[in-house]
Computed example of a mutant assay.
Amino acid sequence: MSHPHRLVVLAGPTAVGKGTIAAYIREHFPEVWLSVSATTRRPRPGECDGVHYHFVDEAEFERMREAGELLEWAVVHGRASYGTPRRPVEEALSQGRMALLEIDLQGARQVREAMPEALFVFLAPPSWDELVRRLVGRGTEDEEEREARLATARRELEAAAEFDVTIVNDEVRHAAEQLVSLMRSH
């Protein structure tokens, strides 16, 4: 009987690098199971259905939500819906796997309601200026969306106190290794 792990929830402000950390862990730590969110937004270049996200239409997302199949869900930046399918998370944990959920703040708060025993990790930027640089440097958003994201990020940074642990994303490999080490010890 393998020792059951706690679900680890990684959240933080927009553009802090949650996706980059998750991708690094996916590549370098195959023993960690990463939850794949469902979303109604369109795929970005290079994103694969079932790997990065389950891309679904509004009707399917609504069906999943109403059927109670989502551990958490939210409308992000006033646009697309995102949610975490519940069953795969429960299956990974029941198999004794280290399970990681990389989501936004609204989602983390819902998971705390649904699974308060999870370990909540806040990914913080090295500084506000660096967060702005990453947000603007990504170049995937227009000016209006960038301003909305910056306003959201300011509020999101204040939520660090709600989390069990904070990891500063100063360097991807370092932050990812800290996170995996934390997962192994819980």
Rank of each mutant, 00 (worst) to 15 (best):
V16G: 05
A153K: 05
F120H: 13
H52S: 13
M98R: 08
L101R: 11
G46D: 07
Q95N: 00
P88E: 04
M115V: 10
R155L: 11
P30W: 06
V36K: 00
A108T: 04
R86C: 11
V136W: 09
E60N: 03
T14Y: 06
A99C: 14
G107F: 06
V136N: 03
A151Y: 00
G83F: 04
L123V: 04
H5F: 15
L182F: 01
L105T: 10
V180N: 02
R86S: 00
L34Q: 04
H28S: 08
R155S: 10
D57K: 12
R44G: 14
Q110K: 12
R63N: 05
E144Q: 06
A151C: 12
R149T: 03
D49T: 01
G139F: 08
I21V: 15
H3D: 00
E113W: 14
A160N: 08
D129M: 13
E171M: 13
R184E: 00
P116R: 12
T84P: 06
P85T: 10
L34R: 03
V172R: 02
D129A: 06
Q110T: 11
R44P: 00
V180C: 15
R86H: 07
A22D: 07
I25M: 09
L157D: 05
E91R: 14
A148K: 13
A108K: 04
S37F: 00
N169I: 12
Q106A: 13
R154F: 03
E60C: 07
T20C: 08
P116K: 08
A124I: 09
V56T: 07
E31C: 15
V165T: 12
E91V: 14
T14F: 00
L182Y: 03
L70K: 03
E156G: 00
D164N: 14
P126I: 10
P125H: 01
E177Y: 03
H186N: 14
V16W: 06
H54I: 02
F29W: 15
L7E: 09
E158R: 10
A38N: 13
H3F: 00
D49H: 15
G96P: 15
Y53M: 01
Q110R: 13
L101A: 13
G139H: 11
S94L: 09
D57P: 04
M98Q: 10
S81D: 01
R133C: 12
R41N: 05
E102C: 12
E177L: 09
A59M: 13
H77N: 09
H174K: 14
E171F: 12
M98S: 09
V75E: 09
M115I: 07
D142W: 08
A99K: 11
E66W: 08
E27R: 14
D57H: 07
S94W: 09
G50F: 13
E141F: 11
